[in-house]
């Protein structure tokens, strides 16, 4: 799922400074799971903002709402009545949700409350790690289910670099070397022979974000 972190409090206070009544819109999907922008996290941020503004002598009224998925138009549009009552929106959903609101509410200023960070996995309670970069052409079948694009600092496709030492990466010593993980898992699966096949260079300019924003169109689903 998409992972995010709350923006610095001072930054949020700064761009909300001109406003006296806002909507804090959370999202019930990814950012709820990573405790950045769900109903609870939104309520905490709203409470903190109200107190900070009272302390500054400039009280702010904050309405709170958390659509099930802010990035889906039918849920985002549920906010129509509430957005009509406020001067601006602080969205603590990912960047996709912020842009959905911006598209549907062109007359309203929408501010992001979180920094969207990566697509990742919950590895322990309160710990999330990057797992996918949406490169556009998945090669996990060749790498024992471990992604060298997301997890190798150099995105190497055919084995580790010389900086792999004792299973750790030279860029960040606390990070596992993706290719060590790939080797170990392939070995435990009895699939080491698969690693002798050369993985061709990725077509970054065709498959990935390098060729501009991507879209998926399913003609059969269009109405």
């Amino acid at each position: 799922m998409i992972k995010a972190e709350q923006k610095p409090f001072e930054e949020i206070l700064e761009y909300l400074a001109p406003y006296g009544k806002i909507l804090l819109s959370g999202c019930g999907a990814c950012v709820t799971v990573c405790n950045a922008g769900g109903e609870k996290d939104g309520a905490l941020l709203a409470s903190a903002l109200r107190m900070a503004r009272r302390k500054m002598g400039k009280p702010i009224e904050i309405l709170e709402s958390t659509p099930a998925r802010q990035c889906e138009p039918e849920f985002a549009q549920e906010l129509t009545d509430t957005i009509g009552k406020v001067e601006a929106v602080l969205s603590v959903s990912c960047g996709v949700g912020v842009q959905t609101l911006a598209r549907y509410f062109p007359a309203t200023q929408i501010f992001p409350g979180v920094n969207t960070t990566f697509m990742g996995e919950t590895v322990a309670h309160g710990v999330w790690e990057e797992r996918c970069q949406a490169c556009g052409n998945c090669i996990l079948e060749k790498t024992a289910g471990i992604c060298p694009i997301a997890r190798c600092a150099k995105q190497l496709l055919n084995g580790p670099c010389g900086g792999s030492s004792k299973g750790k990466c030279e860029i960040k010593r606390e990070t596992d070397c993706a290719w060590q993980l790939i080797y170990d898992r392939s070995k435990s699966l009895g699939q080491l022979h698969r690693l002798s096949a050369i993985i061709p260079a990725k077509q970054w300019g065709v498959e990935s974000r390098d060729s501009g924003p991507r879209s998926i169109v399913r003609e059969d689903l269009k109405v």
Binding site: F9, E10, L44, A48, M51, A52, K55
Partner: peptide, 8 residues
Amino acid sequence: QIMAKIGL
């Protein structure tokens, strides 16, 4: 931590 950001 949140209180510190608010200045409490």
